[in-house]
Amino acid sequence: MRLLEVDNLRVSYGQIKALQGVSFTVEEGEIITIIGANGAGKSTALRAISRMVPVLEGSRMTYRGQDLLRFAPDKVVSQLGISHVPEGRRLFGNLTVMENLILACFARRDRGRIAEDLERVFALFPRLKEREEQKAGTLSGGEQQMLAIGRAFMSGRRMMLLDEPSMGLAPLLMLSVFEALKEINAREGTAILLVEQNARLALKFAQRGYVLETGHLVLAGKSRELLNNPEIKAAYLGG
């Protein structure tokens, strides 16, 4: 079933055209990725879905049959269940690990389920349980990424937007973070839209992929096809 349909998405920052008519879809429970070089507009696409940047006239986004553009940023999370793990994690460094997770439940109505969900996050990332009372700003890079995903999980989980989760992580940590994401996807049916510069990793993880070049989608297809595409190999996978 169709979860999200993005149609003719256009975004500008002043004179700079970041996205020039981008269209893609995400199915319920699906993992997809948008790959592309630095500055191609990948992060902008996620920000537009989260309603954190204004979109230009003619852009349409439909989420489960509803017009996404009618929702304020915090309602996109609390009412539609679309959570966003931003580039650079952006944790609340002055709050403890626990407070970061609890704050993400601020607008939740199902208060009774919060304790249960916290247990799930701690089962997924036992390291966070150990660091429960520690300030988020003192965590290592890997732990911060785990907390960022945990925080997103607590705030909304029908769909998760992930911006460069592999950035700055050692390869082994990177793999364990992606394992956790796979588990969330399998257990909760959370659809994942992943934006990555590490194209090989992203395509191995996702079922489908889109290739973004300077504000235009130039290619779309099954991950396996993209991995074997000679042009993609040359441009994004290091030959």
């Binding site: 954190m52 999370v77 966003h84 609340f92 709050l95 609890i102 939740r108 705030s155």
Partner: peptide, 24 residues
């Protein structure tokens, strides 16, 4: 309180506050 927690979070990074579902 959780309201106070939201205030402290905003003092740290108000841009991200709506992204975790808190009405700014």
């Amino acid at each position: 309180s959780r309201w106070g927690m939201a205030m402290r979070a905003m003092a740290y990074d108000f841009v991200v506050v709506p992204l975790v579902g808190v009405p700014l």
